[in-house]
Amino acid sequence: MTAELLVFFLLAALSVAGAVSLIFQKHPIHSALSLIVVMVALAGLYLLMGAEFVAAVQIIVYGGAIMVLFVFVIMLLNAGLEEHTSESKLAGFPGILLALALMGFVATTLARSAGSFVSSATDGGKIVANLSSTRQLSTMIFKDFVYPFELTSFLILIAILGAIVLAQRES
């Protein structure tokens, strides 16, 4: 087992453990902490794949902004333990089975398409040598994808307006 594979399995185990703990924790803050663990582990996996910029953005935006917002709202609303209302154990069992089936289906389908990806990439497609190049990434954003990028700024503007309208108290 190479060192890289070892690191992968460590981070993968960490992220799965975080995701499982997100389900089983009773308190929203503990769930949020578990999700932060998942996100940091994923950032580590991105680094392993050489996607440095994405890893940094993952931690800065997901870890440092979005999840802080979640924690902030949980603290603000003083959310207590989760209460369980409908006690249908019967519905839970097929639910788990169906989710497992979904996992298997998604995994096999995607893995099969990943194989075709590798073969198509080698036959003449333009292969970018340096996957960790922030420079090339920014060139792509501001040249090839400049319209989607501008659209996202509108999206954020709309989101800001929406948040303000929602949070405003009626006077």
Partner: peptide, 30 residues
């Protein structure tokens, strides 16, 4: 997929997803 295909498009999509997620979190938490 970005790593498998040797192109940066995948990473770019991730950036867009993160932007959308941030906008969504702002409105959703509101």
């Amino acid at each position: 997929f970005s790593q498998a295909s040797g192109k940066l498009d995948g990473q770019l999509f991730v950036l867009f997803v993160i932007i959308v997620a941030a906008a969504e979190a702002a409105v959703g938490l509101g």
